[in-house]
Design a protein around this nucleic acid. Structure first.
Lengths: 343, 343
DNA sequence: AATCGCTAAGTAAACGTTTCCTTGTTCTAC
DNA sequence: GTAGAACAAGGAAACGTTTACTTAGCGATT
C-alpha cells in the first residue's frame, strides 16, 4: 500500500548534498550570503535530483511574506476591469506573487466578507475597486496594515489619504462634449448612469464645463441619467430622439448599449440622424457599424500604475500615499457628423 | 518610534482567556473536540477583543492545506472563459479557498512556467484549460500529485485518464446545422477557426453529420476555416457571399465577428440575404440587430461541474478520474429565414 | 609564535499552528 | 467505597523554513 509519500524537504536535500539545513536554505533564499560555487552546485544538483520544491507555507511563517495578492473589483463583468485584472495579475506574477480575483458585485456587504476572508488568508496586498465607491471597508485593510491601492473610484472629501489610481472622469466628459462641439453641434444631450459613485458623476460636470466654455447653454432637460441597465438605456435612447438633439454623449457603456439597441430597432442611424460619442470602449463596440467615436480610458496605464504602486507600497510600507489620475483620449470612429456653423 | 507591532497570535488569545494554546486552537479549527460552552465563549470573546485572525501560513504548514486553488486558461480575453472563472472562484471561495487566475495565452511554454510557479506555491488544486489543447504540461500536475480538472479541451487518444469537464462540440455543430436544415436550407456553408484544437474540429464533424442525415451532400468547398482573427473572418464572410449559399454556420465567434463586420460594411443583411447560426454567445452578440440565433454552450453548468469535481478530487485524491460532456442548446434569434421546400 | 580578522559553513532557536498524549476531574457501577 | 470509564483541558512535540549566532579554518599582522 503506497502510503501518501512525505514531501521532499530542505532536510532531505541537506542530507543528499552532505551539508547543513542552513546552507540549503541560504542557497534557495538569502541571496546576500556567499556560498562556495562548488557547494552551491552540489546543493542545486541534489535538490533537482530528488525533486525538491520550497514549501511556501513554511517559509511565509518566518519570512512574513505570504506571496498572495488580491484584486477585489465591483463589476467583474465589466470588461474594462477584466482587462486591467489580467494585466495586474501578469505584472504581479513576475514578482513571484499569486493573485486572487474577487468580485463584490457592487455589494458593500459582500465586499466586507471577501476582505475578511482575504485578511484571514494573510494576503500581502490588495487592489480594491470599492463597491458603490464606499470607503467604509477600507478601514479593514488599514487596521490590518495591508498595503492597498484604490482603483478607479475615489472618495471625495475623505479625510484619509489613500493610494489611488484612476482615470479623469471629468476630462472624459469634457473631451466627448468638446469633440461634438468642434464638429459644430450645439444641441448636445448627455445620457448616462444615474450612479451613486461620485466620480462617475464628474462626467456630467465635464460635459457642462465644455458647453459653458463655448457659451452654449446646458439646459437641464438635456441631461438624463438612469439605472445601470440596457432597459434604462433604451428609454433614454427614445427620449434623445424625441428631444430632437443633433448629438449626444453616451456617458456610460451599459446604458449606451440600450440606447444603441433602441436606435437599431427603430431605424435611427448614426451619424446621419444623431451624432454620438461614447465614454468607454466595451468589447461590443467593435462589432457596431458605423464605428462609434469613443473616449478610451487609460486601462493599460492604470493597470501598470496600480500594480507598481501596490508593489512599491509593499516594499516600503511607510511611504506616504500616492494619488494618480490618468488622462483619457479620443478614439475616433465614424459616428460624428460635422455640421457647418452658420456664422 | 512605533516598532512594527507583532501580529496577534493564538498565544495572546490563550493568555487573555486564561486557558491553553491547545484549547484556543481547538476552538478555531477542530470541530470534533468538545469544549465547555462557557470556555468556548470566553475564548471567542478574548479573540474578538484583541482582534485575532488565524495565521493561514502557520496552519497550512501542519495542516497540509494551503487554501489556494488556481485556474489556468488559454484565452482569458474570451468571455466564455471569463464568465466561467467568476463562477468557479465564487464556488471555491465558499469553501474557504483563495483562487488565482492565470492566462497562458495559448502558449504551452508560458503555461509551463505558470504551472511551475503555482506548484512552488503549493496550490491545493487546479482547473486547467490547456493551451493549444496540449497534454504535455499536465504531467507536472500529476507528478506533484496536485488534484486537477481539465476544462473544455480534451486530449483525444490520450492514454492517461483525466478529470474532464467540457461541452459537446460535435453536438454544437450538429444543432446549428440541423436548425438551418429544419428551416428549409440546403446549401449551407460552415466557416470557423482552423483550430489546432481537436475538439473545436468536431464542430465540423457535427455539421457534416447533420447534412448526411438528411442526405444533403456536404461539398468540401462549403467548409472553410481560417486563423483565429477577425480579418480571417472577413475573408470568409466575403467568400460566403461569393459562393451564394443561403445559410451559414458561423463555427467560432472570433471569426464570426469578422464575417459580420464584412456583412455590415457591404450591405449584406441577415436573415434576408443569408441565414446565420453562430456557435457561441459572446458579449457583443447582444448589440447586433437582428439578433443572431446562437448555440449556447453550458457555461454555468460547466463552471459548477468543474468546481465541484475539483473539490471532490481534493477531498478524495484516489477517486478515479471522471469525464463529463455537457450539452449545448439553441438560443433563437432572428437570423434564420424559413424557406419553403419545393416537394 | 601568538593574535587578529576574515570567510565559509554549521547550530539551534524561533515562527504560529496542529494534534497526540497526558493529566486531573467527575460520573457511574458494582 | 472503590475501580474504571468518560470527559474536559493542558503540555509539548512536531511541521519546514529562516536567520542570529557560533565555530572552524586559515592567511596576515605584529
Amino acid at each position: 500500500m503506497p502510503k501518501t509519500r512525505r514531501a521532499v524537504t530542505i532536510k532531505d536535500v541537506a542530507v543528499k548534498a552532505t551539508t547543513s539545513i542552513a546552507t540549503v536554505s541560504y542557497v534557495f533564499s538569502n541571496a546576500d550570503r556567499y556560498i562556495r560555487p562548488e557547494l552551491r552546485e552540489r546543493v542545486l544538483a541534489a535538490a533537482a535530483e530528488i525533486g525538491y520544491v520550497k514549501n511556501a507555507a513554511a517559509s511565509s511563517i518566518k519570512g512574513k511574506r505570504r506571496g498572495i495578492l488580491a484584486i477585489v473589483v465591483a463589476q467583474f463583468g465589466n470588461s474594462f476591469f477584466t482587462r486591467m485584472c489580467v494585466e495586474i495579475v501578469s505584472i504581479a506574477r513576475r514578482e513571484g506573487y499569486v493573485v486572487t480575483l474577487c468580485n463584490s458585485d457592487e455589494d458593500p456587504e459582500q465586499e466586507r466578507i471577501i476582505l475578511e476572508r482575504l485578511i484571514a488568508q494573510q494576503i500581502d496586498g490588495c487592489v480594491l475597486c470599492p463597491a458603490l465607491s464606499r470607503e467604509e471597508n477600507t478601514h479593514l485593510l488599514r487596521r490590518h496594515r495591508i498595503p492597498h491601492v484604490i482603483l478607479e473610484r475615489s472618495f471625495p472629501g475623505s479625510l484619509i489619504p489613500h493610494n489611488f489610481v484612476g482615470h479623469d472622469n471629468f476630462q472624459s466628459g469634457y473631451l466627448a462634449t468638446r469633440h461634438l462641439l468642434n464638429a459644430g453641434h450645439r444641441r448636445i444631450a448627455f445620457s448616462g448612469w444615474d450612479s451613486p459613485i461620485p466620480n462617475v458623476c464628474e462626467r456630467v460636470d465635464g460635459y457642462r464645463a465644455a458647453l459653458r466654455e463655448l457659451g452654449v447653454s446646458a439646459a437641464d432637460e438635456l441631461v438624463m441619467t438612469g439605472e445601470l441597465s440596457a432597459d434604462a438605456g433604451r428609454r433614454m435612447g427614445a427620449e434623445l430622439i424625441e428631444m430632437g438633439v443633433t448629438a449626444a454623449v453616451l456617458g456610460h457603456h451599459e446604458t449606451a448599449k440600450g440606447a444603441l439597441l433602441h436606435f437599431q430597432d427603430h431605424g435611427v442611424r448614426w451619424p446621419d440622424d444623431i451624432s454620438l460619442v461614447m465614454i468607454g470602449t466595451p468589447e461590443w463596440a467593435g462589432v457596431l457599424r458605423p464605428q462609434l467615436t469613443c473616449i478610451r480610458r487609460p486601462e493599460h496605464e492604470m493597470a501598470v500604475a496600480s500594480a507598481n504602486l501596490l508593489l512599491k507600497s509593499i516594499a516600503t510600507p511607510d511611504h506616504p500615499p500616492v494619488s494618480q489620475l490618468l488622462p483619457c483620449l479620443v478614439q475616433e470612429g465614424k459616428s460624428v457628423l460635422a455640421i457647418p456653423q452658420v456664422p
